[in-house]
Amino acid sequence: MSVIYVLLAVSVTVAIVFFIAFILAVKNGQYDDSYTPSIRMLFEDELVKEKSKKIDTNQLKD
């Protein structure tokens, strides 16, 4: 029975360490997306054209 308590304590300790590592990584900007903003401008024209086509077809229906 004492082995269960040891394993429980070790698993909780490992979970806390990984949680602290995750919090530190988020605070340091590890998960910031630096790639998408640089390519968004390349595809912006396609989004504007699609929106204008939808507006044009909606106005024709009315």
Rank of each mutant, 00 (worst) to 15 (best):
L47R: 12
V26A: 11
I4S: 11
F19N: 09
I4W: 14
I23N: 10
E44L: 08
K51P: 01
T57R: 12
K51T: 08
K53M: 08
K27V: 01
T57I: 08
L42E: 13
M1H: 14
V17A: 15
I4T: 13
F18M: 14
E50G: 05
N28V: 02
Q30G: 06
K61Q: 12
A25N: 06
M41C: 12
K49H: 06
E44T: 03
I39L: 04
S11T: 04
V48W: 00
N28P: 01
L47C: 09
R40V: 01
M1F: 07
K49I: 03
N58E: 15
M41I: 13
F19V: 03
T57H: 11
E50M: 11
A9E: 15
I39F: 04
V48M: 12
M41K: 13
E46Y: 13
L8E: 14
K51F: 07
L24F: 10
I23M: 13
I4F: 11
F18A: 15
D45K: 07
K54S: 13
Q59E: 13
L42G: 09
Q59D: 12
F43E: 11
M1Q: 13
V6S: 09
A9S: 09
T36C: 03
L60I: 06
E50I: 03
V12I: 10
S52D: 11
Y31A: 03
F43D: 14
N28L: 07
D45Q: 12
Y35K: 05
K53C: 11
R40K: 12
E44Q: 12
I39D: 05
D45M: 09
L7W: 05
I55R: 09
A15Q: 03
E46A: 03
Y35Q: 09
K54P: 04
D56M: 08
D56C: 06
V14E: 07
T36I: 00
L8W: 15
V3G: 10
L24V: 06
K53S: 15
T57F: 08
S34Q: 12
S52Y: 08
A15W: 00
D45L: 07
Y31W: 02
P37Q: 01
E44N: 06
E44R: 09
Y35A: 03
I23T: 08
F43S: 14
D33F: 00
S2I: 03
I23C: 10
V10L: 10
L47G: 10
V48G: 03
L47F: 10
P37E: 01
A9Q: 04
T57D: 14
A15V: 00
E46R: 04
L24Q: 08
T36N: 08
V48F: 00
N28H: 06
L47M: 14
N28I: 02
I20N: 01
L7P: 07
L24H: 06
L42R: 04
T13C: 14
I20C: 01
K61D: 14
M41F: 11
L60F: 14
K27D: 08
V3C: 12
V17K: 04
A21V: 09
S11I: 01
D62E: 08
A21F: 10
Y35V: 04
S2F: 05
S38G: 13
S34I: 05
L8P: 01
I20T: 04
F19I: 03
T13Y: 03
I4R: 14
D32H: 02
D33T: 00
Y31S: 02
